[in-house]
Design a protein around this nucleic acid. Structure first.
Lengths: 195, 195
DNA sequence: ATTATCTATAGATCTATAGATAATGC
DNA sequence: ATTATCTATAGATCTATAGATAATGC
């Protein structure tokens, strides 16, 4: 009774992957249990209800995101820094940050499945709509607009990235989306000439 | 026994709106019937099964899209046209086409709900994944790349538009997304200077 | 006569619990 | 002694059908 991951962990992962594909309501606890290799009633020794599994996924993602943010996040301008110099540096940093974010939300198995789950659950409740926007919609758009100093610039910058999440999901094994993202982001690097 | 729309039409609209919010599997026929103002068994006089309602929605969207395409579509370069002149004209046409498409997929009630439904159903089957990509992912991206003559340019152009669908859905009554789209697309108009 | 609706319900499936059994930790 | 699993099953819900009743069209 111990693979590399505990049964509780395996329930979380299996449920998340199924919720991402089919949506929370469409997945029965029997399907989750089967994916883990147990019977449905055994699942209730680890979680009080199907809903509790969903909520544990949300809490787990919050933790994972906090870790990723601590390692990855882009600091704001230090008080007193030269604005012009900092703005140029900040855009280079933004490009690097965007690449890390894309990698995280496409390659980390939990984050990738979570992104797809929130995408398919976004219209089910106000809470999911807000989470979707904060993580993948107006959240990153506004953040990018703040650094680029222009909402229109941010639409082009983050819009391309947002589209490439969808392109990636059409064929997750292909590196095409990640390569296209690199080319897209290069347009905002200082060395880039013309359009 | 006739409002403005037939009961069959009202079942299609009600089902589509519910499927868009909650996903096909999560919606029971009793919910659809209730939205229409009939009891669940009466629905089976109009459709053979719940699945048949879904399939009628797909066929209806195909018809609506064919109509919209006939009225809206962007013709390809006429054989023998001057390439440079045509390319400039084509980009202006593309901007106007993009605005009409955005309007269609956000303001037409059937098209808007269909877009949200396909978004939440995209990972349920190969068929839905292909439909989603053709309508909103690689389909428009490749089409745009063909006209702009550059895949990277297309990522920025269509990416912004694709993101603004999501921004629109966060607050469908607000004109903010449509206004931001106009500004975004203006960057590709010939009169536009610099970046 | 046909069509649309209803109530009643069959049969499947889904969440969750009860209680038995096997495995693990002191 | 506690924990994780199982089988069996209660109770709710879901799709779909049967058969009765009311409304519509000839």
């Amino acid at each position: 009774m111990e693979g590399r991951k505990s049964t509780k962990e395996r329930i979380l992962s299996a449920a998340l992957e199924l919720f991402a594909r089919e949506g929370y309501e469409a997945v029965g606890v029997a399907r989750i249990a089967q994916a883990v290799g147990i019977k449905a009633p055994s699942l209730y020794k680890h979680f009080a209800s199907k809903r509790a599994v969903f909520e544990a996924i949300l809490r787990r993602m919050e933790e994972l995101d906090a870790e990723a943010a601590a390692a990855c996040s882009l600091p704001l301008a230090p008080p007193g820094a030269d604005p012009a110099t900092y703005a140029r540096a900040a855009v280079s940093d933004l490009v690097a940050f965007a690449k890390r974010q894309f990698r995280f939300w496409t390659r980390d198995p939990f984050a990738s499945a979570f992104r797809r789950m929130v995408t398919v659950e976004q219209h089910r409740s106000e809470e999911m709509a807000a989470l979707y926007q904060n993580c993948f919609g107006t959240g990153p758009l506004d953040y990018t607009a703040g650094i680029l100093g222009s909402r229109e610039e941010a639409v082009a910058f983050y819009g391309g990235m947002f589209l490439l999440y969808a392109v990636h999901d059409a064929d997750p094994a292909s590196p095409a989306a990640a390569k296209l993202l690199d080319k897209h982001l290069s347009r905002w690097l200082p060395r880039h000439r013309g359009r």
